[in-house]
């Protein structure tokens, strides 16, 4: 099956998590470009420098708790930018806050808790690629 998902932008301050998800996605499909950013500001910088709309990532995976610019504020800025507002976003975070999960779902944003077992990462990565397509 040929995927249309060309690239995923993953924003997370945790180097281990970045490595885990990067590897998990690449294991499934090495053709998907995974761009890593360690905070929201860096991610926005990257997105705003893209001139051509077709070069925008098919999915943004966003951690919530990050220094400098956290995931909530990053999300808000993406949604406020007409160029970026239609990008698909998945929130990928530690712990599960049901209230927060619901408010993200209402915005049409998937809320995925970071796994406590590395085996689950494979299915999570699969899920993300599906959303990206």
């Amino acid at each position: 099956m040929k995927t249309e998902c060309k690239s995923i932008l993953y924003v997370d301050d945790d180097p281990d998590d970045r490595e885990f998800l990067f590897n998990a996605i690449k294991n499934i499909n090495p053709d998907i470009e995974v761009i890593l950013a360690d905070n929201g500001l860096a991610a926005l910088d990257y997105l705003k420098n893209i001139k051509n709309k077709k070069d925008l990532p098919g999915l943004i995976v966003l951690d919530l708790n990050m220094p400098l610019l956290d995931g909530r504020e990053t999300l808000k800025r993406i949604k406020d930018d007409p160029m970026l507002s239609s990008l698909k976003i998945v929130v990928f975070t530690t712990g599960e806050n049901p209230n927060e999960k619901q408010s993200f779902n209402e915005l049409g944003i998937q809320y995925i808790s970071k796994p406590f077992n590395i085996q689950f990462l494979h299915s999570i990565a699969n899920q993300m690629i599906e959303i990206c397509e």
Binding site: D14, L64, N65, T93, T94, G95, N97, K114, P115, F116
Partner: peptide, 9 residues
């Protein structure tokens, strides 16, 4: 919910 969960995870 986060800072203590993170190292546990």
């Amino acid at each position: 919910t986060h800072d203590l969960q993170e190292p546990l995870r």
